[in-house]
Design a binder for these strands. Structure first.
Lengths: 344, 344
DNA sequence: GAGGGGAACTGAAACGTTTCAGTTTTTTGC
DNA sequence: GCAAAAAACTGAAACGTTTCAGTTCCCCTC
């Protein structure tokens, strides 16, 4: 296929081998060391030579062989995103990925996705990456207050950024959504609508942001003199059936909640449809505040209150932090808190 | 952090270097060639030796250095998924990724995500991968009838599998959803409900499945004596506003449709909310059939008719095909058509 | 007991890169 | 005009793997 690119035509005979440093060395009459150093802008190479080498390199479409670089330097030019492959109905994961990819494009870095099964040991992928040196830096989410992955990576000197803060004693890069602000905003909005008995459907309590949300929720509920109607053993990660059962149980109980706070659109959908099965309508019989990334929920139930959280910008933020960490920036300067704007 | 794993403790002095073939060679008293061949189960190594080498390798946690292998053999042990980073509100992409990851885990293959901007040249990432040899095989979606990426990969001998068929003269692995069946089922269901004027909101017409769907749609509409009420220049990939404007235009026109067929949940949501703004209710004033992966849409508007398409199994199917292709399987044997089960 | 053949093993080279330790050439200082 | 210093360049080695081309040893055959 002739795609009209400027790339040189393969030599008519052989299978058109990729140019290497040796190719450039031969063409310029220089040594391969000089070519390498010229392309890496080393100080002991003449400016004219550098220019000449760069020109030839560009002309013949030279691209450094990653395996060569990696073997010699140990640098992989890979960022690894560790992703739970479960508990993800709406694809927040892909938006994170798109954000990271976007930030990484134009850099020499590739994104590799390292999956793990949430029911097994979350340390497995992290150990694998460290032991095999398969990435220069790591990004992960579902951060826990005393996250053993963060500790391990820190101890082993592997740069990383987390989607979500930790409670750990040392500093590390993170990107987080201000879930406490969200909690406060949610309760205020519910109180303003005259709602008094509030149920929080929390994220799994081992996650750091679940703790923060729960704290903010209790504080706000207390401050405004509302009542906390707790769910039993149910989180936004549970199945549709589990959530429906629990929500319907609570809605039939003595203290029927008239307000819900919930941290994911998918579970908000489950709550609403569970309530509707009992003939209860959002906006009339109860109000619900949810976090969501795209206005799917809002679209369908405009009565629902929604606070936006953008996973794509989280991705670009995380990738950016990780790149800066690799360039030597301090962890403290790489901590970004996304403050929710409005509730609508 | 002591994680209690069986991995040997780092030597108290140095920084605990990773074991290599040389390490095993030293420990067993064999040559490094022998060790290499033993681990690769070469025929000219004694069975006892192989066993011994494998034992030691396992004991010290030997893992082959990917850069070494790659540099020597050119094999990258990487599968590249080329993903458009736009036009993806609901994260189908992540389910594809999870499916692929799932299939790849336990193999030596890593998944790397190569993004591209749909508005620029789709050949860019494909050329990059081929030119730099950065993957052993490629998976991509948004397949076009005469897909230049497929042609290019085929011409350059790079194994690949597509999510969606093509019209090309040569065979290649693909995984596809039987969109024609979907179209026929949709029209039948609408006709059975007495709907007569049907509008199809198609995928972008340059995509292969858009053509197939359009064909099946027209055939079924003709066969059942219904009327096709076409949209103008609008597809499921357009923005919410664009879809809303066009749907409302068509709903206000002389031939107001009473049935909709649509190939993505996100755009179905837009259609419904556009119709509801005009006071039209699904199930009453019109029916709508959509394809969707998770029952988000169905959950909210149970009146809507839905056909399930699972992107995760598509991912495992694609990964499986690509692995088999790498193992030498014929393209013809790696073509999987997912037939939709029921409409509900 | 010489020769052939097979089984089991191995040293050296190569993949493409960077870095160590120079070497050569030019410039500077006096 | 000479020594010293600075600038510009370079060969060889090394990273870990596989493969080429052997080598060694032993057993079998005649």
């Amino acid at each position: 296929m002739d795609d009209g690119s400027a790339r040189p035509a393969p030599a008519s005979g052989g299978p058109a081998k990729r140019p290497t440093l040796k190719t450039i060395a031969f063409m310029t009459g220089l040594g391969v060391t000089t070519v390498s150093r010229a392309l890496n802008d080393a100080p002991d190479i003449g400016e004219a030579t550098k220019e000449r080498v760069r020109l030839v390199a560009k002309q013949i479409g030279y691209r450094p062989n990653r395996a060569g670089v990696r073997l010699r330097t140990g640098r992989t030019n890979v960022i690894s995103l560790i992703l739970s492959t479960e508990t993800e109905i709406l694809g927040l994961g892909s938006h994170l990925i798109y954000g990271i990819s976007e930030r990484l494009s134009g850099t020499p870095y590739h994104l590799i996705v390292t999956p793990y099964d949430i029911r097994t040991d979350p340390m497995v992928p992290v150990r694998y990456i460290v032991e095999t040196g398969s990435a220069d830096a790591v990004i992960f989410s579902r951060t826990m207050p005393q996250d053993p992955r963060a500790v391990y990576l820190h101890d082993n000197g592997m740069p990383f950024a987390t989607h979500g803060r930790t409670d750990l004693a040392f500093q590390h890069p993170w990107y987080d959504f201000d879930i406490e602000k969200f909690g406060a905003m949610a309760i205020e909005a519910l109180a303003a609508r005259g709602r008094r008995q509030i149920t929080l459907l929390p994220p799994p309590m081992n996650l750091n942001y679940a703790q923060l949300l729960m704290g903010a929720f209790r504080r706000a509920v207390g401050d405004l003199g509302l009542m906390d109607v707790p769910v039993h053993n149910t989180t936004i990660d549970d199945s549709r059936d589990a959530i429906r059962t629990e929500i319907q149980r609570i809605l039939r109980s003595d203290h029927r909640p008239d307000g819900f706070v919930c941290a994911s659109a998918a579970s908000a959908i489950y709550i609403i449809s569970a309530a509707e099965e009992l003939g209860l309508k959002p906006g009339r019989d109860f109000d619900l505040v949810s976090k969501e990334s795209y206005e799917i929920l809002k679209q369908f139930r405009p009565e629902v209150l929604v606070v936006g959280e953008d996973f794509r910008t989280a991705g670009t933020g995380l990738a950016d932090s990780v790149l800066k960490a690799l360039a030597g920036a301090s962890a403290e300067s790489l901590q970004i808190l996304e403050v929710p704007e409005d509730i609508h």
